[in-house]
Structures are given as C-alpha cells and as structure tokens.
Design a protein around this nucleic acid. Structure first.
Lengths: 333, 333
DNA sequence: CTGTTAGCGCCTTCAA
DNA sequence: TTGAAGGCGCTAACAG
C-alpha cells in the first residue's frame, strides 16, 4: 500500500507537504496550486488510502464510537441501530458494532475490544435489567449512553421510551372502547421496559377504579408462551373483552389462541400489542398496538453521545431523554 | 491510558520485556516467573489496555474483517449478520460493520473506510443486482465474499441459496396439492435471487406441461404492492387455486387481499411464501413458505472468507457455496 | 509556501 | 532471560 512517503518521493516534496495537501480541507495553511495538483494526481495514481491506524496513533483520536448491542437479530434493536448509523455517519464518526450475542459474558469482551480501539464513546443498546458492567464502564471513563433501556445509574445518560405512559395509554384506550367487562393483561418482568409498562397499567386501572375487574396475569416471554397462556384464559369462565399484550409477538400468540378457539378478534376479544414491529400492520387482523419510535430512539442516542464526546456540558435532565410512544389503532382492538 | 513504557518504568524492566510478557501465549520465549508476575500485576493495577492502533501499525495486521451490509433493517440480512458474527468471533477477528443504507453511493464510502482500516477481507451482504463496485473491489485486492446474492464475477467468492431450486420446490408442491386449476405467481426482477426463483418456477411449469394454465404476473416489491395486485387478480374471472409469492411480505399482502374479498386461505386460494421470516410461523393462517437458512448462510460466508484470508487455496467450486432452501408446510398452502 | 524533526505505542530483531 | 534500537505511517510544531 502506498504511503505518504511514497508520494513525497515521487513528487520531490517532503512528506509533510503531502500530508498537508491530503488534509487541506480542515486547515488554512496556504499551499501552492501546483503542488496540490501534482500531489493529488500522484495520490490518485498510486491509489493512496490513508492508514487509519497511523493517523489515530498520531492524533490520539480514534474517531470511533462503539455500539454494544445486546441482540443483533432482535427487530426492535436493528431499527435503533439504523438511527444511530445515520447520525454517526453525518457526524463523521465510525461505528464499531459489537454484538453481545445476548450474553453477559460476551458483553464484557465487547467493552474490552472497544477500549483497545480507544473508542471515544459508547452506546449500549438493549440488554437485561440487572446491568452487570457498571464497574467496567466506570473504569473506561468515557461517555456512555444507554439506548432503549432505562438505567438507574447516575453518571450514565440514556434515551428511552416512556413505557409507563405507553401502558397507561393502552389501558385508557381499551377501557373506553370495551366498556364494562373484564380485562386481562399478560406480562412478565425481566426488563425495565416491561416493568414500567406494567406499572402504567396497574396505576391506570387503580385510578379508574377498574382494578378489581381486571385480571393481571404474568406470562413468560415470546409468542409460544403467550399462546399457551391465552389458550387457557380465553377458555375460562369469563371471556375477557380485551387483552393488552406486553409486545407484538405476545399479541400474535394471543390472536392465534383466539383463532384456535374460534373467537373473533376484535369482535369477541380485542387484542392490543406493544412495539409496532414491521409485520404488525400486515397481519390479519391488523394489529392495534403502541408504537415505539425506534429509529428516533437511535438518532437521539447517537446525538446525545456525540454531544457528550465533544465535551458539551449537559444537565442531568438533558442527559436523560424520554420519548413518547404512540397509540396506533388498526383493527385488532 | 497506561502504556507499555509506563509499566516498564514501574517494574524496572525494559518495554521489550513487558511486551513479551503481555503477549507470551503465542511465543516460546522463556521469561522468569518473577517478572511475569510482577508485570502482570502492574498491568492489572494500571488497568492497562493494549493500543490496537499501535499494534496494528507495528504488526501490519489489522485483524479486521469488514462487513458491508446493504440494509441493516432488513430482517433477512440481520440474521445472516449473526451467523457471520459467530464465526468471526471464534476465529479472533474483529467485525467492522459498514451499512450501505440501501444506497450505491454510501456503499462506496463503506469500501473506502474498510480500506483505511486495512481490513483483511470483506463480506458483502445483500445489495442490488447490478453490482456497481467491481472496479473498487478489484483495486482493493483483498478477499471478498458475497453473501446472499449470486454474483457473476469470477474472482469473487459467494455463498447463496439455490433460489431456482426453491422456485421449483414451491411449484411442485402447489401443483401436487391444488391439482387442476390455474396458478398465479407474482414476481419482479431487481435481484438475482428473484430472477432465479422465477426461472425455477417457469422451468418447472414447462416441464410439467402446466405452463399454459399458469398465469405469471409481475408485481413490484413489498406488501402493499402485492396487496394491490392481488386485490385485482383475486377478483378476476377465474380464481387461482394457489398463489406463489416471491417472498413472505408479498404473501402477507396477498393474504390480506384475500381476506378483504372474503376468500378463505387456503380453502379458496392457497398462498405460499418465500424466506420464512420470523413472523411467518405466527400469523394466521400460519404461512407455508420456502425456508432460507440465513444464519447458516452467514456462517458459511464468514468461514469461507476466513479461509481465503488465511491464504488457503480454494478451487472455483469451493469458493461458490450454494445452500438448499427447504419447503415448510404450515397452513396457508 | 515548504522542509525538518520528533514521536504517538508497540513489536522484533540483534546483541548481551 | 533481558535490553537497546529501530521503525510501522502519520501529523504538528518549529524553522526556514
């Protein structure tokens, strides 16, 4: 690979001059037109590509933002990632993606790698509730932003969706729509998100005095688990007028159970999801759900981190962004 | 950040010794137990993290494999990515992800970035049919493997699914199942994959003498487009007994149209998808489809590239892996 | 406007 | 078993 020195030799100038020409946009150092032309021509000719390592070593600036993502395949996260990518690209940072493969163990090695490349800041996308790496992150002593999960730990910054509000919204909607009957909400609690939704639900039920009429049932994660649970409770003594699922996959399971039992959705039982994943607008019945602005989540997270990295002094409040979810009414509820 | 020299100074040894200790696993150079202990202790104490740039610069080895992904949010690709990540992690390579954001323009900058970090090999995941960057890739003079798209260009290696076979399989299945009536297949042609499927379909129809009875209709990409088209042709003079969609999203659109027209799937019209995306097993009716081994696709691609990078001499045949798709019968067809 | 010099942090001969 | 020296490619003073 051609180096700056190669170019310098051919152009009969010093390496410094070559460097200046190649990076001239930033600086105001005057250079003669002639040398500029000569050098760019030679660089082109040799197919010169700057060596990022040498540059980073010399300037002590990696230009890298690390993204630690809990589960690459989760459709929820991948859209966040695109929002991040967009901003980081615009801001001139390189994105180094490190997948934790849904394992705490792997997550640690992610941080190590990012330290080795001297990442200037880190975005942590998703992950389980009990955050295990506080000490590591503190040792890194670099700006960190958590995206898509609420983190109770003061130094950190975060961007998340107001899940409590989402829960409230969902309950409000269902209460207004299917008046006077029982409600079942399925839930489980491994993440902060789910806990918050749950809380929003409970609170709204209490405030409206409907708590007694509601049946709150905990279900494990996933479509299959929701399906099994729904199969049971939709066959119980009283048919719920509506079910508020904890996410879209869960809603899918509930709808499937309803179909098996020859119940019409939303006629016999309404089903409301959460997340608004891409397929939810396409399935039959089209899923009513609480939309989470995932792309925007990523954008805000990245922007926040960039600000932090560039040394902006932000208040506690500015460092904790909360976005509002949105009710999307389609045909399942 | 602590450097090797810092450690050396504190330990009263030379930087060389520290380096030896810190990298001793590879080499056979004998070092005294005492200095090993002393140095590792100090390194630990100072929270020493090797500087990847300095190391790469010195050793002229980046340890980076670049992954250029056409569209990060496409669920099809993200699973491939995980397969890649798995292998590359095991082999000790760092994965540098570069998203093309579904733009030819951006794709070029991806390659540039990867060159700057001296990536040792590149995986190109997805992308449009007319591959525009042949010249760039050739200039890079590095091993390149295309994953998930057939590429007609000899130096390259590739891992793809036998889409033609997938098309054949689908037609075979439908012909046997819904005998004696008309078939409609929706299609469009921007990617090699789709073209191959199309070819498989046509060939099978010809071989079985059913070509005359089949209606082949071209549709633009996406659920919405398929929906609109299906709305029309499901309302035509003759109702097709089955529709073979070009992918699962298209199948979704066709099913939605059938529902709108109060046609039963698969009773009135069977619908067969292609891809087997995660939601397809959950929707109602559960989608029968042609499964593509996406995770495996990624694994093979990464392994192939690693072999190439490490200088293995592979035959033309070994450099072009083709995986078989699989028919998954659920309830839509 | 351009050249000289020095050094970022690391590894690797070569010598002891 | 250890140390000294040099250099990977680049940029940033400083000095012309």
């Amino acid at each position: 690979m051609a180096t700056i020195e190669d170019i310098a030799r051919i152009a009969h100038v010093s390496p410094a001059t070559v460097s200046r020409v190649l990076n001239r946009k930033n600086s105001v150092i005057p250079i003669s037109e002639k040398t500029i032309k000569k050098i760019t021509a030679i660089a082109e000719e040799l197919n010169y590509t700057p060596n990022a390592f040498a540059k980073a070593l010399r300037t002590q600036k990696s230009n890298i933002i690390g993204v630690v993502i809990w589960d690459l395949t989760d459709p929820f996260f991948s859209e966040i990632l695109r929002g991040i990518d967009e901003i980081l690209g615009n801001e001139g940072y390189n994105l180094l993606l490190s997948s934790a493969k849904a394992s705490i163990e792997h997550e640690r090695t992610c941080y190590e790698k990012l330290m080795e490349v001297r990442a200037e800041g880190i975005l942590v996308v998703g992950g389980p509730r009990e955050f295990q790496h506080e000490e590591i992150i503190r040792k890194m002593n670099k700006p960190v932003v958590f995206v898509g999960s609420r983190v109770d730990y003061p130094e950190a910054s975060s961007v998340s969706v107001d899940n409590m509000y989402g829960g409230e919204m969902g309950v409000d909607y269902l209460l207004k729509k299917q008046c006077g009957s029982y409600f079942f909400m399925s839930c489980n609690k491994p993440t902060t998100d789910l806990e918050d939704r749950w809380q929003g639900i409970v609170r709204t039920l209490q405030q409206t005095g409907m708590y007694a009429q509601a049946n709150l049932i905990g279900v494990d994660f996933g479509e299959e688990q929701s399906y099994k649970a729904a199969k049971k409770f939709l066959n119980g003594a009283v048919l719920p007028a509506a079910v508020f699922a904890m996410n879209d996959f869960s809603a899918l399971g509930i709808i499937r159970a309803a179909n098996d039992l020859e119940l019409n959705v939303p006629g016999d039982v309404a089903v409301l999801g959460f997340d608004d994943l891409s397929f939810s607008r396409y399935i039959e019945p089209r899923l009513s759900t609480i939309h989470q602005p995932r792309y925007t989540l990523g954008e805000h997270g990245a922007q926040l981190l960039v600000d932090l990295v560039s040394g902006k002094d932000l208040t506690e409040e500015q460092r904790h962004i909360v976005l509002a979810p949105k009710l999307v009414v389609r045909s399942s509820a």
